[in-house]
Nucleic acid binder design. Structure first.
Length: 270
DNA sequence: CTCTTAACCTGGACGC
DNA sequence: TGCGTCCAGGTTAAGA
């Protein structure tokens, strides 16, 4: 489900409800999601004051003096702030009850998400090898160009590699490549510096705009207050295989690239 | 290293 | 109505 804009939308939605609140209780309805939930979550989190929420790549970190809860929403996860007496629904796996009598509830049907722990001053191994944030000045066309030299994988696969740049998933990779006029099938190592500059600009523009629209809701993404995202209606390529290209009118192609459904225009994207 | 493939898991859409 | 198949926004692990 969530790429960077959806995770950032979640962060912004949670922040006013969570920052400064104290954790009253932690309830795990199952011991694991993608991985076992470490004992620190139950042992250390209760009683802590949540100082803030950070996002790194598609991860969220709930910061406390005792350490940080590290969350990933996987494909189907969502976090909501609800009244403490809200009835539990299927796949409500974790409750973090707050001293405001509300509860931060983690729902994840497919359980590809995770809840882990990062000790103060440490960097969790999952965060260690991540590439730069796409909306930061550390990310630009030169970085894509330099890191792609000698690589034969399709540029779409390269762009979705979280070690290259974080936050770009299947939706926004398709959109950015469409906007930049680059075929997703082209070998990453054969894209020019100038075209990578256009691609980096497209990534930044699309992610920033999607955040502004509250993310993309395809099936089930919801922000913490229950609102959907409104970017879906602006998607130009993703999910539109066979439809006319918005630029030239020819039918958009669809195929699997790196085991992910991909849509592009064979005329406008080279 | 880089690249490809399979796997994790559930639910919804679709075809018969 | 029911059942089988395929597909889904992510990521890791294993093997070549």
């Amino acid at each position: 489900m969530p790429e960077l804009p959806e995770v950032e939308t979640t962060r912004r939605g949670l922040l006013p409800h969570v920052a400064g609140r104290r954790v009253a209780n932690v309830l795990l309805r199952r011991p694991d999601l993608r991985w076992p939930i470490p004992r620190e979550v139950e042992a250390l989190l209760p009683g802590q004051r949540i100082e803030g929420i950070r996002r790194r790549a598609k991860y969220l970190l709930l910061d406390t003096a005792a350490g940080s809860a590290l969350l990933h929403l996987g494909m189907s996860g969502s976090l909501r702030v609800l009244p403490g007496d809200t009835p539990v629904r299927a796949h409500d796996h974790v409750d973090i009850a707050l001293d405001s009598s509300r509860v931060l509830r983690f729902n994840d049907p497919r359980r590809f998400g995770c809840l882990l722990w990062q000790a103060p001053g440490e960097t969790h191994p999952l965060l260690a090898a991540l590439g730069p944030e796409p909306l930061s000045d550390d990310f630009d066309g030169d970085l894509l160009f330099l890191r792609s030299r000698g690589r034969s994988a399709p540029v779409k696969t390269f762009l979705m590699d979280q070690a290259v740049v974080v936050g770009v998933g299947n939706i926004y990779a398709a959109e950015a490549l469409f906007m930049a006029g680059i075929s997703p099938l082209r070998a990453a190592g054969k894209v020019s510096r100038g075209r990578y500059q256009a691609l980096a600009d497209a990534v930044k523009a699309i992610l920033a705009h999607a955040i502004q629209r509250g993310g993309t809701t395809l099936r089930d993404f919801i922000s913490p207050d229950g609102a959907p995202g409104y970017f879906e209606q602006e998607l130009l390529a993703y999910g539109r295989g066979g439809e006319p290209c918005p630029r030239c009118g020819r039918p958009l192609k669809q195929a699997m690239i790196g085991q992910r459904a991909s849509v592009w225009c064979g005329h406008c994207q080279r």
